[in-house]
Each structure stands twice: as C-alpha cells, then as structure tokens.
Simulated scan of single mutants.
Amino acid sequence: MSNPTEVTTPDGAMPAHLWLPESGRGPGILLLQEIFGVSAYIRRRAQDLADLGYVVLAPQIFWRLGVDEIANGPSMLEDAMAVVGRLDWDSAVSDARAALRALRERPETTGGTGVVGFCFGGGLGYAVVAGEPADALVSFYGSALPGITEAVPSVTTPSLHHFGEDDAYIPMDVVRTIRERVSGGGSVDFHTYPGADHAFDNDDFVNHDPQASAAAWATTESWLREHLPVR
C-alpha cells in the first residue's frame, strides 16, 4: 500500500506516492511512469519492488498539467499522447531529478538508489541519471532513448534495458543503435524478447505479452539484487 507524499520543486510541491518494504527501510528506487501516468499497473510494479525490499517513490510527472493517470479505455493511448504533447520535457527531467534527490534524503532510504522506468519513464530515467548519477537504471523500452542517446551517448550509471523485438515504435535496428551508443559508459545489459511489442510488460494494455513480461521481470529482479542489493 502506498502513502501520499510530495517532492519540493522550485515551482511548487509535486505529488508522489511512496511504498515502504516490510522492514520499513532499504535501498531507494525512483519509479518513473509510462505515458499513462501513475496508473494501477505502475502501482502494482511499485508494490512488487517494495516486496523485494526497496523504498519506492513514484512522482506524478504530469502534475504541472493536472494529470495523475490516464483512464483505461479505447482512447487511452490517444489521450496519453495528447498529454505528453503538452509536457515540457526539461521540466519533467528537472522534476524527476528532484524526486531522486528527495528519495536519497528520506530517512527510510538506506544504501544506494536506483531508477526504474517504463516507456516514457524509461527514457526519462536515462535523462535523469545523465545529470544525477545513480547506482542502477532499469529501462523498459525507453521511448525517448533514440533522441536522448544521440545527445548523451553514455552514462556512468550501470543500466539494464528491455526491448520487444516486434516493437512498433522502436524497431530492432534502432535498438542496436541505442546499444552501440550507450556501451561506452557504465556496465550495460540489453535483453530483447521475440514477438513482444512496445509496452509488453503492462498487463492493462493490449500489447501485454505474459511470457516476455515474466522473463523481463525475473531478469530485473536478479539484476537489481546484483547492482542495488538489499542488506
């Protein structure tokens, strides 16, 4: 179960959600949403991470637009794209970095801090650690990575990347280019999943691929245990 909290920014308080592990403390994970906001799916993944022993903070990145999440339904993708079209990217990066700093300063956070992001959040997470290095980054099909990695080809933060091999938005030739670009920095792991489309981990979305989702999450758990261990 999450608790409401806030992150201080120069322009006001950004709403956020906080999950604590059973122990009440642990390494921190900044969880960055898809374009659908802090949805029920993102909240489930936050609880999964808390169950692994992490303190999880999920900021409402669309707060400046007055949006928490996009309602499920036939127009959800269209509605989400309309919201993202109004988003100021630089402000979103600044807000997410502020959330990472706030997570580090929380008394419940012990040990290191990492970033886990999905789709929109996967690219945003890379932009965050480019200016605010963390101990780990997990990016699920980061939609902004093609453009971001052209400007910032590598980061020092160890990273794990998941992509579907049938992603309609990020084809495999682009995935290979991303991999080449980011491999000059910290340790990098790439995993691809045959037959999986974009957003394959989201079990509330039409593209959900149960087999790819289970495999990617198992890999994420073991990778986090190595790079962001719970003591």
Rank of each mutant, 00 (worst) to 15 (best):
D203F: 04
P158T: 03
E226I: 07
A134T: 04
G184H: 10
A199F: 00
S187H: 09
P171E: 07
A130H: 03
A168Q: 04
A144I: 03
D173A: 08
V230H: 12
A218K: 11
S222W: 08
P210C: 08
G142T: 07
D189S: 14
A134H: 10
L145D: 12
V174M: 12
A218R: 09
V138A: 08
P153K: 11
D135V: 06
S183A: 07
D197R: 01
S159F: 13
Y169C: 00
F190W: 09
H161D: 10
S143G: 06
F163D: 00
M172T: 12
P146F: 02
Y169N: 01
P146K: 04
F205W: 06
S213G: 05
W223M: 07
D135Q: 11
R176M: 11
T149E: 11
D204C: 06
N202A: 10
E226F: 11
G184K: 04
R176N: 15
W217D: 02
R181D: 05
H198F: 00
L124M: 09
A216Q: 07
A218N: 10
L228D: 07
A151K: 10
P153F: 09
D209F: 07
S213F: 06
A212K: 01
A144C: 05
T192H: 08
A144S: 11
A212F: 00
Q211T: 15
R176V: 03
G164W: 00
P153A: 09
V206Y: 01
V175M: 08
P133H: 03
G142P: 07
H191T: 06
G121C: 09
L160G: 10
H227P: 15
I178N: 15
G142M: 03
N202G: 05
Y193P: 08
D167G: 01
G164K: 00
P171Q: 09
W217A: 03
G185K: 05
G186D: 05
S187A: 14
A136C: 09
C119T: 04
R176Q: 13
G121Q: 02
D204P: 14
P194Q: 14
E180T: 15
H191V: 09
S222F: 01
A196P: 12
A144F: 01
T177M: 12
V174L: 10
A127H: 01
E165L: 00
G147Q: 13
D201T: 02
S154A: 08
A127P: 06
A215R: 05
V128K: 02
L145T: 08
Y126S: 14
W223K: 05
S159H: 10
S187Q: 15
T219Y: 13
D189Y: 07
V182Y: 03
V230T: 09
C119R: 04
A127Y: 01
G185S: 11
H227W: 02
H161P: 15
M172P: 14
D203N: 14
P158C: 03
G122T: 05
V175D: 09
G147D: 14
S154P: 05
Y169D: 01
A127E: 02
G184T: 07
A144W: 04
R179A: 09
S139H: 04
G142I: 03
H208C: 09
D167E: 05
F200S: 04
Y169T: 01
P171N: 09
D135T: 12
A196T: 05
A168K: 00
